[in-house]
Design a protein around this nucleic acid. Structure first.
Length: 288
DNA sequence: ATCCTATCCTGGCTGC
DNA sequence: TGCAGCCAGGATAGGA
């Protein structure tokens, strides 16, 4: 699923093809992809606008627009689970799953493709509306080990759902949370306020190491969905320690990887390397 | 404050 | 082989 490393890869690869281009036309093939804006309003906002920058925040692709050399809003994409963005020459076969197309002034077109239709491509004049509630970027200098330790202790949530919460730390998804927890040797069911300083430091470092390496490998592709804008699969799935490896040996200790459900999410871990939190068990009346 | 469930979607997988 | 039913998952809303 596209998480921070995949979205970073998408932004990097489409940037040189989009920077400086103007939008010449818009084709909306699935209205809900626009997130509530009418196709007509979307077209009016986009046609004639010029792209000045392409970047990423959390799992959002952000495209800066201007008109007559003045800022003119943003195009913001979220791939959710199966979304893809391609920028290709005219005539490129975008498949039946294309939802929105932007025709550019150099003959290329941006194709927003999404099998499951959860992805969104918004136009907004208020970026804060979409990005305002996000937590810090885990690879930025805002995300310090001290801040992280303090915030873990300020909450009483299970590590797995907390790390998936985009308002806590922005950009992690199911894959990279499982991988980070394994690297930090922390159990997904640990309560955040039980994490000791040495452990939160380990988790902080693990998150950054996993994301950095995954970006180097251009993300993870283990099913038919995620591909880079050049159509290539990522490479980080070859380095998965736990994700999608149920029953396979732990890369560290060889014991079988376990899969459970936490907060409605498939959760993979090693029960040897990632010690279970002490369960507060009910005292039995008839205990021996 | 935190957790749980349903919702949005579809292709692919499982089991009969 | 065919087909129904289930599953995956990011984000969010509403209820417990």
């Amino acid at each position: 699923m596209p998480e921070l490393p995949e979205v970073e890869t998408v932004a990097r690869l489409i940037r040189p093809r989009l920077a400086g281009r103007s939008v010449r036309g818009v084709l909306v093939r699935w209205k809900r992809t626009l997130g509530g804006m009418s196709a007509r309003a979307f077209e009016q906002a986009l046609v004639g606008a010029r792209i000045t920058a392409v970047w990423r925040r959390a799992k959002f692709v952000v495209i800066d627009l201007e008109r007559d050399a003045q800022p003119a809003g943003w195009l913001v994409g979220h791939l959710r689970m199966t979304g893809r963005i391609h920028v290709e020459p005219a005539g490129w076969d975008a498949s039946a799953y294309e939802r929105v197309r932007l025709e550019l002034d150099d003959g290329h077109a941006l194709h927003f493709i999404d099998v499951r239709k959860f992805g969104r491509l918004w136009f907004t004049r208020d970026l804060n509306e979409l990005l305002g509630a996000l937590g810090p970027e885990p690879l930025s200098s805002d995300f310090t080990a001290a801040w992280f330790a303090q915030e873990l202790h300020a909450r009483r949530r299970l590590l797995k759902p907390l790390l998936l919460d985009q308002s806590f730390v922005a950009g992690l998804g199911n894959i990279y949370v499982d991988e980070s927890l394994h690297r930090a040797r922390l159990h997904p069911l640990r309560r955040s306020d039980s994490v000791k300083p040495v452990e939160s430091e380990r988790l902080h470092a693990a998150i950054r190491a996993v994301l950095t390496r995954a970006i180097e490998r251009e993300g993870s592709s283990f099913d038919a969905f995620y591909r880079t804008p050049e159509g290539k699969p990522g490479g980080y799935q070859d380095e998965f320690a736990v994700y999608d490896r149920e029953g396979e040996p732990c890369v560290t200790c060889k014991s079988a990887i376990i899969k459970i459900v936490v907060g409605q999410r498939g959760t993979h871990f090693c029960r040897t390397c990632q010690r279970a939190p002490r369960t507060r068990r009910r005292r039995s009346v008839t205990a021996p």
